[in-house]
Computed example of a mutant assay.
Amino acid sequence: MLEGKIAIITGGAQGIGAAIAKRYLHDGARVMIGDTNQQRGEATLRELAAIGDARFMAADVSSRLDVHNLVAATVEAFGDVDILVNNAGVVHAADFLDLAEEDFDRVLRINLKGPFLCSQAVARHMVERVRNGGVPGSIINMSSINAVVAIPDQVPYSVSKGGIAQLTRVLALSLAEYGIRVNAIGPGSIRTDMLEDVLSDPAAKERMLSRTPLGRAGDPAEIAAIAAFLASDDASYITGQTIFADGGRLPLNYMVPVNT
């Protein structure tokens, strides 16, 4: 699906980002992963190198200089950028009344400002290529069901994902004249390291499953499959959309039986 394409995946050292990198490599793309966790990133790169042509660069998406360097390193290594996946993100749990300003700022800086900076840097490259007769590219933002619903002790995370939903729409309209598509993926409960604490707690796991009609957590590979589709020519007429992969949670307005 992605033969010959070149992708940047932020937050690619683990979880959903690493799964997307693996899927892209299997589909024929070359991949640059960026992450602040250098040790984890280098370990993931060793796994990815067995699949295809991948690189890693330590980068903080909330830093304009790091973003510039990440894009420049990708172009230097591969010659171009066709796909950007804005996957890097953090969470911070705190009661609203106790939430510190610096923690609110940190989450918004990474989860919302980061995708803005990365998208702007990559889009400038893509627009120049289109103006010179080249083909447009695709930008994919990682949203969440929390762009629609909310968790009381996840104030900055929920706010940042609501912002991602609107950023996706605005960028899609801004870049449509160049044929650059911008979409988002909104995962529900996905089996990553972040979810392991929930899955290891029987009561917490039952609460999660009671609001998930399909009766299970999702797998990162299932999100990666959507990212592959959105980056491919099969999605050539889709832009400004968020695809929610949540096991049926968002339409639900009641609890479902849980088989444990």
Rank of each mutant, 00 (worst) to 15 (best):
R181N: 07
S189M: 10
G188R: 07
N183S: 10
G137S: 10
P115V: 02
I190R: 01
P136N: 01
A165Y: 14
N132W: 04
L173V: 12
V149K: 14
L173C: 12
S138Q: 12
S138K: 11
R181P: 08
I145G: 01
T168D: 08
V135F: 07
N183T: 04
N141R: 00
E102P: 04
R211F: 09
A184S: 15
V149D: 14
G162L: 13
V198I: 15
Y157K: 06
S158Q: 11
L108T: 01
A121R: 08
G218R: 00
I110S: 03
G114P: 00
L173I: 06
G133H: 10
K205L: 12
A172K: 10
S158V: 12
E177G: 11
I110Y: 04
L108S: 05
I185R: 00
P213H: 08
T212S: 03
M194N: 06
R211L: 11
S160R: 00
V159H: 05
I164E: 03
L199I: 12
P156S: 05
A203P: 03
D197G: 15
A217W: 04
Y157R: 05
N183G: 06
S143W: 01
V182L: 04
T168N: 06
V127N: 00
P213D: 08
P136W: 00
R106N: 07
M126I: 10
A184W: 08
M126T: 01
R109C: 12
N132T: 06
V159T: 14
H125C: 01
L171F: 14
Y178L: 10
S119M: 01
L117G: 00
R124I: 02
S143E: 07
S160Q: 02
M208Q: 12
D193T: 12
A147E: 02
R131F: 08
